[in-house]
């Protein structure tokens, strides 16, 4: 219960921060914000001074910043994000449209990273200090130093341009998933593998683990019955923290491969100074982080009922 309350406070603070940041962005837009918003609402050809004036008085753009700020935050908490300044569509519709593409990409990346990282980490953690452990350390350190955009660039050059196996960009077919998902997954897997390796090494050094072997269980049985569940808790907690890393990666990778998702939309919105879109996407990403971590808190408490910390 306490966990959920603190996550709720976190969510509310995220909303206030996003609101304040986007309000500051709105106030600092070059040109007259009222004209821009009016153009977004009525179309660029139908804007006149009267329409801009109506928007100005409605949103309090002319007056002191404080009442305008309160109204801005009020709209935010009523989940009224307004209309995109570029497309003229309600922000909610735009985001709902783009969220699916991003979610699939993120899920594919996490799934792929879980297929690569943890199994390698378990093998390494069962023999800490061994040859495989040391090799994994070198590889994961090198992979961690490659930012996601650089990974995408390297994969595009290698798999698309040189070998011609995969399309460099595009969306709509399963094969379009492989390259961006792999670019995201390799970085995540490098961290996953290290976390799993350390957790596995610490579990395997516990007395209960040795006892399970003494009483005659095979190595596989010990791993399945006593190892994996204990390893999964730190891995899961880390997965929640990696969410931010994943979102950042999604934002960049989508822009590189032209993926019609929320990150691509965000970069374009920032570029076009489309503040309502920036606000909507930022809020969604921040609240998404809080939600994912709240779920992970609950799941971790279920897996390991001894209580975390």
């Amino acid at each position: 219960m306490n966990i959920l309350l603190s996550r709720l406070v976190q969510a509310a603070t995220v909303a206030v921060l996003v609101g304040a940041a986007t309000f500051a962005m709105m106030r600092n837009l070059p040109g007259d914000a009222a004209w821009r918003i009016a153009a977004g609402r009525y179309g660029y050809d139908n804007v006149n001074a009267a329409a801009a004036e109506a928007v100005r008085s409605e949103l309090g753009l002319g007056g002191h910043w404080f009442p305008a700020f309160l109204q801005w935050m009020g709209n935010l908490f009523r989940l009224d994000f307004g209309v995109s300044l570029v497309s003229g569509q309600p922000v909610i519709h735009e985001i709902a449209h783009q969220l699916g593409a991003s979610l699939w990409l993120a899920l594919a990346a996490v799934g792929l990273s879980l297929l690569i990282g943890p199994p390698l980490g378990i093998i390494a953690g069962l023999r800490p200090g061994g040859l495989f452990d040391r090799a994994l350390l070198v590889v994961s350190t090198a992979l961690k130093a490659v930012p996601q955009f650089l990974m995408a660039l390297i994969l595009i050059l290698l798999l698309s341009v040189q070998l011609g196996w995969l399309p460099a960009a595009g969306y709509g077919q399963p094969r379009h998933f492989i390259l961006p998902a792999l670019a995201l997954a390799l970085g995540l897997a490098a961290v996953n593998a290290r976390i799993t390796r350390d957790a596995m090494a610490s579990v395997a050094a516990q007395p209960f683990y040795a006892f399970a072997q003494w009483k005659g269980l095979s190595r596989t049985q010990v791993l399945w019955r006593h190892g994996l569940r204990n390893v999964s808790v730190p891995l899961l907690t880390y997965l929640g923290l990696q969410f931010v890393l994943l979102v950042e990666g999604v934002v960049v990778i989508e822009s590189i491969v032209g993926w019609p998702g929320i990150g691509h939309a965000l970069v374009h919105a920032v570029f076009a100074r489309d503040v309502p879109m920036v606000q909507g996407t930022a809020l969604l990403l921040g609240l998404g982080f809080v939600l994912v971590n709240a779920l992970i808190d609950l799941l971790a408490a279920r897996i390991d009922p001894r209580g975390v910390q």
């Binding site: 976190q10 603070t13 995220v14 950042e248 934002v251 930022a282 921040g286």
Partner: peptide
Amino acid sequence: DALLALPGLLMVLIV
């Protein structure tokens, strides 16, 4: 905690 929930690149873009 709230800043931790927001992707860093996003904050940098807004600033």
